[in-house]
Design a protein around this nucleic acid. Structure first.
Length: 110
DNA sequence: TGGTTGACGTGGT
DNA sequence: GACCACGCCAACC
């Protein structure tokens, strides 16, 4: 079989993890990448999010290691990402997630 | 086939 | 604590 559709792409893996993020929690690209076994390829996670636009992926729950909404520019609304997170009880200082450490969720804990 | 990209992370200064 | 440079690896053109 040449590239059977049975094989799940790296993106699919990312989607599964992001979908498992509990409401009111957030995670980082590195945490997802590490969970997938590609800790050094944290960039790939963000790329997968770019493909997740067609899916129902809560990519707004994924931030960088400092809790900064680096991906907000890729949302249909720049403030949408912050709005969604604020709606879940998160607090921000500009684009920086204040209670990031408190709401951080590790995929390996699932 | 090869080179570039990319919503990051880590280490060093 | 902030800024700069390098590395990572899969997907895209």
């Amino acid at each position: 079989m040449t590239k059977a559709s049975n094989e799940i792409s790296f993106f699919e893996r990312c989607y599964e993890v992001v979908l498992r993020i509990p409401c009111g929690k957030v995670t980082t690209y590195g945490a997802i990448a590490k969970y997938l076994g590609t800790a050094g390829s944290s960039r790939m996670v963000g790329w997968a999010m770019n493909n997740s636009h067609d899916k129902n992926i809560p990519s707004h729950r994924v931030v960088n290691r400092v809790g900064l909404l680096t991906g907000k520019h890729h949302f249909p609304g720049i403030n949408l990402m912050k709005e969604l997170l604020e709606n879940e009880g998160h607090t921000f200082s500009g684009d920086k997630l204040l209670n990031f450490k408190d709401v951080f969720w590790d995929p390996s804990e699932s």
